[in-house]
């Protein structure tokens, strides 16, 4: 990761932490609305890789604020939502790991039990898949200079993959947390409830699956592979 993006992420962490209680104003004041605006137009001149990084942080610290809407145009909001979801899922995983390594039952940490380890491994695979989808989508959008229409295949695949991960990720996160994760006081719901909301926003599973499925059916069996390879690497 570049030094400029590291700096951007440091700023984002500080600003979104403040925004969690203060609302969207600090985010606007810090200029995140100009993240994707070219430098010659007075913007930050960032790419989707930057947006992906910032939105993942927003997904953890300020999931209830309209950050995707502030940063991205309408056609890119499904892609922005994938990044928010990747961030929130990463946080759900981090909270879960921390909890099972700390919480003791039957005389040892929950994380020592194979049943718990296997559950968290399943969850981690889903989280890695969504992070990979967000990252690959960023590479594709940047190669296409943010042309959402041309990147329709990847946007559909990434949003659908993210939607499909929500069930497993939220269920396992809550399961390993036990009752404490179901309280208002504990932070888990701050990411799991937004994940449930985002699954239905900017295209639910049926919407993207049928859209992608029709596109692929139209290509024909062998052309799926040719199309996929022609669209990257």
């Amino acid at each position: 990761m570049s030094a400029a993006r590291d700096l951007l992420c440091d700023t984002a962490r500080a600003v979104f932490a403040e925004a969690a209680t203060a609302g969207i104003a600090p985010v606007e004041e810090a200029g995140f609305g100009l993240l994707l605006v070219p430098e010659e137009q007075g913007g930050f001149g960032g790419d989707w890789g930057d947006a992906n990084a910032v939105l993942q942080i927003a997904g953890v610290l300020a999931p209830d604020l309209p950050v995707a809407e502030l940063i991205a145009v309408e056609t890119l909001q499904p892609a922005a939502t994938v990044s928010l979801m990747a961030g929130a899922m990463g946080q759900a995983l981090a909270l879960s790991i921390d909890h099972v390594n700390t919480r003791q039952q039957f005389g040892r940490p929950l994380g020592k039990f194979q049943a718990v380890q296997q559950s968290l491994a399943v969850m981690a695979c889903e989280v890695r898949a969504v992070e990979a989808a967000a990252s690959a989508l960023a590479t594709r959008l940047d190669a296409l200079e943010l042309d959402a229409a041309v990147a329709d295949f990847e946007i559909a695949a990434a949003k659908l993959r993210a939607n499909r991960a929500v069930g497993v990720v939220t269920a396992i996160a809550h399961q390993v947390h036990g009752a404490i994760g179901f309280t208002e006081e504990y932070d888990l719901h701050r990411v799991t409830v937004p994940l449930m909301r985002w699954r239905g926003a900017h295209g639910n599973d049926a919407y993207w699956a049928q859209r992608l499925g029709r596109q692929v059916a139209d290509l024909g069996g062998r052309s799926l592979w040719e199309t996929m390879t022609a669209r990257g690497a």
Binding site: A136, A156, A157, A206, W208, G213, V216, A217, M228
Partner: peptide, 20 residues
Amino acid sequence: PALATLIGELTAEMWTLRQL
């Protein structure tokens, strides 16, 4: 719709796995 959904879901998973 059922078939389109299945093809879409399998394609999304395959695309993600290829990236990983």
